[in-house]
Design a protein around this nucleic acid. Structure first.
Lengths: 151, 151
DNA sequence: CCCACTTACTTCAACCTTAAAATATTTTTA
DNA sequence: TAAAAATATTTTAAGGTTGAAGTAAGTGGG
């Protein structure tokens, strides 16, 4: 089983994949910290909410981000403290909260998102638009097949 | 700047890339937890040390893994408690420690590494050996160019 | 109506992570 | 050689992450 050559090549692929992914992520974290005094998880929450202007319930947010409920609680707590988000009560269900970007949060996210796109554009400069599109589609397939396997 | 189409394609590529990478990583973490009651950072430390049978100094370990010094301290502490690693004093330098796998640590790592290779092999089954090799090389370039940019 | 079940969210304990400060030791320099 | 600088590591504070346990509120069958 472990002398299978294809298996070794796939392992090698994964190790490269992980290394590249971590390098890019580290750069983004660093930039967010230095230029916006923020973090990637905070950015992720803002990005998710920017796509839902009506807001999301806590559970929907953790679903979208694929992280645990308790995790979202902590990040949202801090973003609310900072005036980036608001929690709004949901009519007819006193258990649930709707979370939305504040006006200030929207402005802040717009600035961060533009910078973020530029960082990526520079880091992935060696990929032409066609290459980028092709690989993106391939990765989409991979991610989908993984999701099916994990059902 | 942000209406550049290539930029949008690269951003899309990065988001797919990150999603796939996180999905694979999550699966590995889950498997490590369930089958070995362990974690990915612990696995990474063991993997690094398995390539250096003479051991590594703490600073070398954090260099190889590209994580902070303090981080390595905590993970190694726990692995030492569990009998997976030993800290050995370095002659002529009382500041430094050499960290090595114990015999038990080596056996434990061998078992985990084999399982790990099999998990990857299944998850990346849709990549043939040639594809895997090609993409791996491409990612190696990417990672190298990122490292140069960050110098 | 009420008791069991489910749902929405928070809290908790343990671990991971970082940057910055602290400690201890070695090396360099004045 | 004493003081300063550099090196090796740990500690600390703040945040992120999870699974599991806890709290509160809605839902439904008997």
């Amino acid at each position: 089983m472990s002398e299978d050559l294809a298996s070794k090549e796939r392992l090698r692929l994964w190790l490269r994949f992980l290394k590249a992914s971590r390098a890019i992520e580290a750069q983004i974290r660093d930039n967010l910290r230095r230029e916006f005094a923020s973090t990637l998880p905070r950015f992720d929450v803002m990005a998710a909410l920017s796509r839902y202007s009506d807001g999301l319930k806590m559970s929907q947010l953790s679903e979208v981000l694929r992280v645990s409920n308790g995790n979202v609680t902590g990040i949202v707590d801090r973003l609310v403290e900072d005036g980036i988000l608001v929690r709004v009560a949901v009519p007819n269900d006193r258990r649930a909260w709707l979370v939305r970007l504040t006006e200030r949060g929207e402005k802040e996210f717009a600035a961060q998102a533009e910078a973020h796109e530029n960082w990526i554009n520079e880091m992935l400069a060696e990929f032409g638009p066609k290459d980028a599109a092709n690989i993106a589609i391939r990765l989409e397939h991979l991610e989908k097949s993984l999701r099916e396997k994990t059902l």
